[in-house]
């Protein structure tokens, strides 16, 4: 079973090909160039490197959110078009779950956080040790609310994700020795993990199709929020 994994939720652009047995190929770029230019050429070179034609794929897994709205759309749109053209099952994977799933052996809480701007992080809590157990839904929270929640707990907390760099000192100040940090290469989302999670979902027949896969933005568009709050229009022109 060949599963292609895609992640463009953050500044990282990552593509991987996995089977039940192994990671066949992975390409992970973190450079200042748009995902729109990079993603498809990376997919083509991962498949070419593995000697696999697009028609030989069995499914696509994509980090479907949370993350940058535009980044998510590029990944999801690409997955949907592959699914439509090749009649493949698709699988939208939580970006936060994929980040946590890179640390299944960590004995304690795993706390992925992605920069959500406006004073918030995208976050969910998982419990590690032997595989990961989800403790909360994916959500947008303020750092202080999250720290208050973590303060109630006793376990060590492993922080991963792009917002960790922004808040590292605050996390250490609040949690002391309980705050743990993953090395950079496993603190960013990797498509290999997205693909592996997708493979498990597809094996459990929990896949989606190009018809129903959409990004999990968590937040509504700014104009909609504003409209809801004030009845004010935020339209262009």
């Amino acid at each position: 079973m060949y599963i292609l994994g895609i992640d463009t939720a953050t500044l990282v652009c990552s593509v991987a090909l996995v089977t039940e047995e192994k990671l066949v190929a992975e390409y992970t770029l973190q450079v200042r160039k748009t995902h729109s230019e990079r993603l498809l050429p990376l997919i083509a070179s991962v498949l070419e490197g593995a000697g696999i034609k697009p028609q030989e794929l069995d499914g696509i897994a994509v980090a479907a959110g949370p993350g940058s709205f535009t980044g998510l759309r590029i990944g999801v749109v690409t997955a949907k078009a592959l699914g439509q053209a090749l009649e493949l099952p698709l699988c939208g994977i939580s970006t936060l779950e994929a980040l946590a799933a890179q640390h299944p052996l960590f004995n304690g809480l795993i706390c992925p956080m992605l920069d959500a701007r406006r004073g918030q992080v995208y976050n969910a809590l998982f419990f590690g040790g032997s595989g990961i157990q989800r403790e909360t839904d994916d959500r947008a929270v303020t750092l202080s609310d999250l720290l208050a929640e973590l303060f109630e707990r006793q376990e060590p907390v492993l922080f991963v994700g792009d917002a960790v760099k922004l808040h590292r000192q605050t996390l250490i100040d609040a949690l002391g020795a309980r705050a743990c940090f993953a090395p950079e290469e496993s603190a960013v989302c990797r498509a290999a993990t997205v693909a592996r999670l997708g493979l498990l979902e597809l094996q459990a027949a929990k896949g989606q199709t190009w018809q129903d896969l959409v990004p999990h933005y968590i937040r509504r568009a700014g104009a909609e929020r504003k409209f809801q709050a004030t009845g004010d229009s935020g339209g262009r022109k």
């Binding site: 729109s36 498809l40 697009p54 759309r73 749109v77 690409t78 078009a81 053209a85 090749l86």
Partner: peptide, 13 residues
Amino acid sequence: LVGVNTAKTLAYA
């Protein structure tokens, strides 16, 4: 971006 990425992925596949 939605149209461009959809169309080029279809073309590739």
